[in-house]
Each structure stands twice: as structure tokens, then as C-alpha cells.
């Protein structure tokens, strides 16, 4: 069934933020994961993460081939002169960083689910770890709206 808030295929609008329902989400870090046809997974930041991060000034990635555990750091991201870690939602081998966002970090803000993707990994424990991520529309709506409500109550994002 299509929600009345559905914008177009695979895109939900939850508490004022777009959320793509074709992918999986790390609830703690607001990072999405999209399985690719070649067996890799693509990862990026969700819209709420982008909102709280602010205007991006720079990114950096670990070398290709780096072995990552779920929750580990695959790079760094700078906004407001504040450098934070980029955390992977799944274990794997770092396969590629998005060269386009290295050249133009604003892409992440402008198109977080599309051209602003960050990295691709070759997963090493995909079947065991995928169920740890959120995916169904009900899960996404519940989790995302609760987080937005919490952030608004704390003054972290605008009403």
C-alpha cells in the first residue's frame, strides 16, 4: 500500500525529511546501505544526518582494501571545522570512495541518497549483519519520526 506521504517510488517523507525505502539504515548512526547488483554495498548519510552535520567542507577515506568491522571508521567528514568519523553499518572491505564528493563535498548535502553517496564495500558478513539494520516502511517511519521528535525537543533541529 502506498502511503499518502509517499513522494515517488521508494521515497517516504517522514517528519519533514525524505527517507528512501529501497535501502537499509543503521539506527544509531543515520547511515544508509544499498545492496548493489555486483555484490558490493553502497553507503551514505541519511537526510537527518546531513541536517545535523551542516555544510560539508571536506572528506577523507581510508585506502582501498582496508578491512572494516561493523561500526568501524572508513573515513572522516568535516563540517563547521569539526571533523567526525564516517562509520560503516556493516563489516567489509573498503572498495571505493566516491571521488565526486571528494572534489565537491556539497554533493552530500544536495543529494544524500543519490550522487552524494560516500563509499562502496565488499561485505564480509552480509547475511548475519543485514538483519541488524532497519528496512521495512513501518520500521523506518517509527525510527525516523521518533528521532526527529527527540531532536526537535532538544532544539537540535528546527520545528
Amino acid at each position: 500500500m502506498t502511503s499518502e506521504n509517499t513522494l515517488h517510488n521508494d521515497e517516504l517523507l517522514v517528519a519533514g525529511f525524505p527517507v528512501r525505502s529501497d535501502r537499509y539504515y543503521d539506527r544509531d548512526n543515520h547511515v544508509w546501505l544499498l545492496p548493489m547488483p555486483d555484490g558490493r554495498v553502497r553507503i551514505g548519510l541519511d537526510a537527518l544526518n546531513v541536517e545535523t552535520t551542516g555544510t560539508l567542507a571536506g572528506l577523507g577515506f581510508l585506502p582501498v582494501g582496508s578491512v572494516l568491522r561493523r561500526g568501524g571508521t572508513y573515513g572522516s567528514l568535516e563540517a563547521a571545522k569539526y571533523v567526525g568519523p564516517l562509520l560503516t553499518p556493516i563489516s567489509g572491505i573498503f572498495a571505493a570512495g566516491n571521488e565526486a564528493v571528494l572534489a565537491e563535498p556539497g554533493l552530500v548535502t544536495a543529494d544524500p541518497y543519490g550522487a552524494g553517496w560516500l563509499a562502496e564495500l565488499e561485505p564480509t558478513d552480509f547475511d548475519a549483519e543485514l538483519p541488524l539494520l532497519l528496512h521495512t516502511e513501518a520500521e523506518l517511519r517509527s525510527w525516523f519520526s521518533a528521532t526527529v521528535t527527540d531532536y526537535r525537543s532538544r532544539g537540535l533541529i528546527a520545528e
Binding site: 545535523t52 551542516g54 563540517a79 563547521a80 571545522k81 569539526y82 537540535l156
Partner: peptide, 9 residues
């Protein structure tokens, strides 16, 4: 630390 970076700063 608040998750919003500008607010944290």
C-alpha cells in the same frame, strides 16, 4: 556532546 555540530561547537 550534541549531535548537531554547530550546536556542539
Amino acid at each position: 556532546v550534541p549531535p548537531r555540530r554547530s550546536q556542539a561547537l
